[in-house]
């Protein structure tokens, strides 16, 4: 072995050591920023973090990356162990990094996307022609993919028939509609209902004028290298949640009950994503 080879080996080893993880490192849980990603929103989720670390029997770190893409990439480079993904981000993460679906809310099995507006003249999807419209994040299932499909089926060419923007998250879409920045928008039903219930959205200014056909959405996943035992503990932490007992946690998760998730249910979504060239 020449000296040069030795140098190469040394560099390779030190790089490899950078990527290795020590045993007692905290498990890192990530969420797509479907409701924003700030210090404040992480602080609001503190109870969830504590609950998970109790059930997993070790420290847990909660991270909300800036956008949906970053969450998936963080699963890819091993910086997240578990993550909360939307339907579209899930099929992408599954294809690229083989993530394992664990649990989802019962409501995710029959999820709806809502079309909301503050303009009384907008009554059907066709009325959206020539208007300003807001999607959520470009990778959002309920904020972009499924609404896009509905619009297409209603004969609206998104690129030509109206102006649109990506608001980046569901609350942003809701607020953009409320303030009149856009004429209408598409939003995740659980976020919308929670915002109305908490009074974060003015009922007199926003209403739902169209509800999409049901589809499969959010899911909690594990990176494929996470141990079976940790996966099971994580899933159990969610399936154990009971209405009336764990209100605070369920409130943060905007759900009532969690069940096992499986990959084959996402076949339809995969086809839609492929058809709309988002996959």
């Amino acid at each position: 072995m020449t000296r040069r080879h030795a140098v190469y080996l040394f560099v390779a080893l030190s790089l490899a050591s950078l990527t290795m993880r020590a045993g007692d490192k905290p498990l890192v849980v990530g969420m797509i920023p479907d409701a924003g990603a700030t210090q404040v929103s992480i602080q609001e989720k503190e109870p969830l973090k504590n609950y998970l670390s109790q059930h997993l029997g070790g420290p847990v770190n909660l991270i909300i990356p800036t956008n949906y893409n970053a969450t998936v990439e963080a699963l890819g480079n091993g910086s997240l162990d578990f993550a909360y993904l939307g339907g579209l981000t899930y099929v992408k993460a599954r294809k690229q990094y083989g993530v394992i679906p664990l649990v989802q809310r019962t409501s995710d099995m029959e999820f709806h996307s809502l079309f909301i507006t503050g303009n009384p003249q907008i009554k059907t999807l066709a009325d959206l022609k020539g208007k300003m419209f807001a999607f959520g994040d470009i990778n959002s299932t309920s904020g972009h993919l499924m609404p896009y499909l509905e619009l297409k089926q209603a004969g609206i060419d998104v690129e030509k028939d109206f102006k649109y923007r990506y608001s980046g998250s569901h609350p942003a879409t809701a607020k953009a509609v409320e303030s009149g920045a856009v004429d209408a928008g598409s939003i995740d039903e659980s976020v919308y209902n929670a915002m109305i219930a908490e009074g974060k959205l003015d009922k007199t200014k926003v209403h739902v004028f169209y509800t999409s056909k049901p589809f499969l959405d959010y899911v909690w996943v594990a990176r494929k290298d996470v141990s079976k035992a940790d996966q099971e503990k994580f899933a159990k932490a969610f399936t154990d949640l009971q209405e009336g007992k764990d209100e605070q946690i369920l409130g943060i998760l905007r759900g009532k009950k969690f069940v096992q998730a499986s990959d084959d249910r996402y076949e339809t979504l995969r086809k839609v994503a492929e058809e709309l060239k988002m996959f």
Partner: peptide, 11 residues
Amino acid sequence: TEIVGTINNYD
């Protein structure tokens, strides 16, 4: 990152 976060959160 925080600025983008607050904007997305309509905060």
